[in-house]
Design a protein around this nucleic acid. Structure first.
Lengths: 254, 254
DNA sequence: TTAAATAATTGACTTATGTCATGTTGTAGG
DNA sequence: CCTACAACATGACATAAGTCAATTATTTAA
């Protein structure tokens, strides 16, 4: 099964048609008539590929459009006055980015590519114009927004977990599930967040994340080489996430 | 200025018209024509008041409609196999509840009243029907969803903060801001979450939350009596939330 | 109103996690 | 291929936060 980071580019990225796109059914899941899809595809454009570290948008920037990730990955973060990053989310192929800015027209976070990333963009003006004429598109948008809101409720839950191990386990399972939902492998995931990114997202120290990764590897719950992670035992990981295991079978200190 | 929990009920709750409702401009902020509003008000209904502890919907339940809180407050939480609660969110007067279930039609969390709570409900069928005919309503819905998504991004940020004090400070400021946005006092807030609720939301122990509350009171950053909180020093609270203060001016242990 | 139950607080002590220091591995650029 | 730099890992130690236990408010129910 292909990994999330290896979604095939079936055409040169600047001219690819969504009609042939392997993930188009994910971006706009269901219920759009072919002619509406075609209309959408006509306004859709493909910004040049982002290289690792390149920024898609910044805090305060005017929203240009909504983005779908075709391949690659994006992290979002905010920075404090001292330039210290705190990662607030990550986005995988097939996922939409920037919806939270629709109501204000301004971005709240910084979005940065974690690896070479190809995007599709629908400019806001086109989206608004199409929306006016086609309730179906709005309906679709409402669905997508609602889905994202649901996912974020889940994330809030995961971040509220009380110990480091359960938070890490939750992150791994969340990534796995999202990969799986998009047709990638659920067990072999490549999350291109650095350990630093992960720790800042979970509110932990880098060292803690490293230690938990190491421990999970020794316990054969996961295996990994760098950022390529292989989940070996989902049940165990689920138990680490849940409160049950947190009480009785804690991870012993090294 | 009235407190969040003291929004005036200007009529008997079961027959109140939104046209006179003091918070209607908050639920559907702008841009709706009067006749559309009227249509909306016609399908809108008022379930009987919820008493403290009563449940509005449960995990897995079919979504009946979307809810706006007229007065009172609601918490959402999920439970693990052992019945242990983890609070994932709270909702104040003027806020909408249940939007995350639109795409699946099923609720993911449990919603429970924190005090006597009056709601408005728009049944999904009516919402769908009106949506089909009136792009304006969809537009409005998209706006509201986007706004909620934005708020949740913020919450994810707050929950990722690394130490207990900054998370508590973030919660207080979040509540304050939301009260303020809705025309209530920003400094005198009544957050009807128990200390237990707060701790579970933030991934902390109850005792830790109590101690931080106590310390903030001794430092004259806040004052409180039970769940009635008075923010005395916003700057200090902001510094506690930010990483700056976390490093140099930590709260000394008692 | 009082009694009982629940929630909040506080202290003493333990432990998970953070911090600092140092070594290792991996990766980008010449 | 080597060098330089960043990412990752691990140990020793410090400390923030958790746990357990006891006490004092606050509700709720009788």
């Amino acid at each position: 099964m292909p990994l999330a980071c290896q979604a095939k580019i079936t055409d040169t990225p600047t001219q690819i048609s969504c009609l042939q796109c392997s993930i188009n059914t994910i971006c706009f899941p269901a219920g759009l008539d072919l002619d509406l899809r075609t209309e959408l595809y006509n306004v859709l454009n493909h910004p040049p590929a982002l290289e690792r570290g390149e920024v898609l948008f910044r805090t305060g920037a005017t929203m240009k459009g909504i983005y779908a990730i075709r391949s690659g990955a994006i992290k979002t973060y905010i920075t404090d006055e001292n330039g210290h990053e705190q990662v607030t989310g990550y986005y995988l192929p097939g996922e939409l980015l920037g919806l939270g800015a629709l109501h204000s027209g301004k971005h709240f976070q910084i979005a940065e590519a974690l690896e070479s990333t190809y995007l599709c963009q629908i400019p806001v003006e086109d989206l608004n114009r199409l929306s006016k004429d086609h309730p179906q598109i709005q309906e679709q948008l409402i669905n997508l927004l609602s889905k994202q809101l649901h996912d974020h409720h889940k994330m809030v839950w995961h971040l509220g977990l009380k110990n480091a191990t359960s938070r890490v386990a939750a992150l791994l399972l969340n990534c796995s599930e999202r990969c799986h939902d998009r047709g990638f492998s659920a067990s072999e995931i490549k999350l291109n967040l650095s350990r630093q990114d992960i720790s800042s997202h979970l509110g932990l120290a880098v060292e803690t994340v490293c230690r938990i990764f190491g421990q999970l590897k020794r316990d054969k719950v996961i295996d990994f080489k760098g950022r390529q992670i292989d989940i070996l035992n989902f049940d165990a990981l689920n138990e680490y996430m849940g409160t049950k295991m947190v009480q009785k079978g804690k991870i012993p200190r090294i």
